[in-house]
Amino acid sequence: MHELALIESVMETVLEEMKRNNLSRVESITLRIGKMRQYVPDALTFGLECLSKDTPLEGAKLIIEEIPIKGHCSKCNREFIFKNMLDNTCPSCGEITSRITSGKELELVEFEGGV
């Protein structure tokens, strides 16, 4: 369900930026979302489809870059990917780390459109 709230927020920003840039149509919107946020890409796409009907964003394609959960090992100074949040043992030295360096992203990166 949080997908709809997120899409609403994305649409608000894009519609504002369209006005500012004198654009009348949008072809694609790119988001960058960390895996830890547990957003379902299909639900986001469906959310945009539903909410953008009869707006200048109707038909826009949603591009989602999913960012893996990564941690930083303070012992051997290495960054590694977690398969899930409990898999936070450094593969090279066995140290457990909870310092997450990526995976919580929630960014509107860019959109592409025309006048």
């Binding site: 927020s9 988001l31 959109f111």
Partner: peptide
């Protein structure tokens, strides 16, 4: 002629809430 324009934002989606 149709131009494609790319607008780069890179901002937190929930910025308004924050």
């Amino acid at each position: 002629e149709v131009f494609k324009i790319k607008v780069t934002l890179v901002k937190n989606i929930l910025e308004a809430n924050t």
